[in-house]
């Protein structure tokens, strides 16, 4: 079997500071530029990655500004794969924090609790794993 040929594989590292999410989105938009997807699909992928990165900064690295997160994007003709890694401990298992209904969030006046739902709605696969002392959020989208 022929190995899968990646058309593009890129990596960005940013400090674990929320203002750097702008840089993350710019990087992701650049990688998506030549992919044959509509604007809404592309903007939703940018959103899913942004949510994963915000989670990595806030929950993974717990807002520690001296830490960083890595974003690796691989694009081939059929798939888009993204790995977001943080340096946090494995104490906080975000996968166990299931999203609540929007009505419940409104009633409880909650600001958070929607990011994971967005990620699952947009991507075909969302996984959280522990790899080489890092928390890794793995996102995958099938390109049609």
């Amino acid at each position: 079997m022929m190995p899968k040929r990646f058309l593009s594989k890129t990596k960005l590292t940013v400090p674990s500071v929320k203002k750097h999410l702008t840089e993350v989105r710019k990087f992701v938009r650049q990688q998506l530029e030549d992919i044959n997807l509509g604007n809404v699909d592309k903007s939703q992928i940018v959103l899913a990655i942004d949510e994963a990165c915000a989670n990595a900064m806030v929950h993974g690295n717990q807002g520690n500004k001296s830490k960083s997160i890595d974003i690796e994007m691989s694009v081939d003709t059929e798939h888009l794969e993204i790995k977001i890694s943080d340096d946090g401990s494995n104490d906080f298992d975000i996968a166990k924090h299931l999203s609540k209904d929007i009505e419940e969030l409104v009633k409880n006046k909650e600001k958070g609790g929607m990011g994971l739902k967005l990620m699952h709605s947009v991507m075909d696969e969302v996984r959280f794993i522990r790899e080489k002392s890092k928390n890794v959020c793995y996102l995958r989208k099938v390109l049609q």
């Binding site: 959103l47 949510e51 915000a54 929007i102 409104v106 006046k109 909650e110 990011g115």
Partner: peptide
Amino acid sequence: EYISSAGLGVFVSNIED
């Protein structure tokens, strides 16, 4: 130009008030 869940959370958390 863009809104994330944190941005939407601002509106969600203020609707009741």
